[in-house]
């Protein structure tokens, strides 16, 4: 297995608040890795640091062997490292199809900035909307969808960009129970069929235990534990800090 993402000793401070302290983690190609921890433990900050939105103060981030610690957000994204947002973000006044079209892989050259859309991209956009079950809404504006549907749209947009590694920030938050099962299935299919490596922040234990092969647990900005789902679940430190005595 090749290492796709290597985070080494990353520290991020906001003024006096240390959001991440000396965090190291590894994601291998083809894996689904979980990231859990109490609210405010620094999970989303770590995502923002990895993709370059809040560059780390210390430490380094490497993607597929390349140093990306100081790289800006769009450049990191074009390498194939994408993140979704906890507060779902889609383009509200554009139709679902338009949301999908502009999410196709892009470049900085004039041709990719001012070119047209290929028939292949249209087909893929339609297929992926069908994949997340939004086909019938494809000509509606993104902002008119329900929150859960917007989450699905955001997921489809991420797939449209053909990422190698996808950082998902609470993909099932706000989604109803029946839809969650479908989503777990789709995440697994994206991983297995499309070959997309996933690093997933999740509070729903059933989902993350079902999905991930390895889990990292953060607390107070530090790495608390790492291991297979069953080990994490029985780890006393994780139980004390996060899961609670069930």
């Amino acid at each position: 297995m090749t290492t796709l993402l290597q985070v080494s000793n990353c520290t991020k401070r906001f003024g006096g608040v240390v959001a991440n302290e000396g965090i190291s983690l590894t994601v291998n190609e083809g894996e689904i890795v979980g990231l859990i921890g109490p609210n405010g433990s620094g999970k989303t900050t770590l995502f923002s640091s990895i993709v370059g939105a809040h560059p780390v103060d210390e430490g380094s981030v490497q993607f597929d062997g390349a140093e990306i610690t100081r790289m800006n957000v769009p450049s990191v994204a074009r390498l194939g490292l994408l993140r979704t947002f906890q507060q779902t973000r889609i383009y509200g006044k554009m139709t679902c199809m338009q949301n999908m079209a502009i999410s196709a892989p892009t470049g900085r050259g004039l041709k990719s900035m001012f070119g047209g859309f290929t028939a292949d991209e249209v087909t893929r956009a339609e297929e992926l909307l069908d994949f997340v079950g939004l086909s019938s809404k494809r000509f509606l504006r993104g902002g008119e969808l329900s929150f859960g549907q917007q989450k699905l749209l955001e997921f489809a947009m991420a797939l449209m960009a053909r990422p190698r590694l996808l950082l998902l920030d609470e993909p099932t938050a706000g989604i109803n129970p029946t839809l969650i099962n479908g989503l777990i299935d789709r995440l697994k299919r994206a991983n297995a069929q499309l070959g997309i490596t996933l690093l997933v922040i999740e509070h729903n234990m059933r989902v993350i235990m079902n999905l991930a092969s390895r889990i990292y647990c953060l607390a107070h900005g530090r790495l608390l534990a790492e291991g297979a789902p069953e080990d994490i679940q029985s780890d006393q430190r994780v139980i004390d800090a996060y899961l609670g005595a069930g």
Binding site: Y91, G92, A101, T106
Partner: peptide
């Protein structure tokens, strides 16, 4: 062209547009 949708994407959510590359 792509410019039209990219411009609208920036209008709707510039952070998202950046995050998508």
């Amino acid at each position: 062209t792509r410019f039209g949708l990219a411009a609208n994407a920036i209008r709707d959510d510039e952070d998202k547009a950046e995050a998508m590359g």
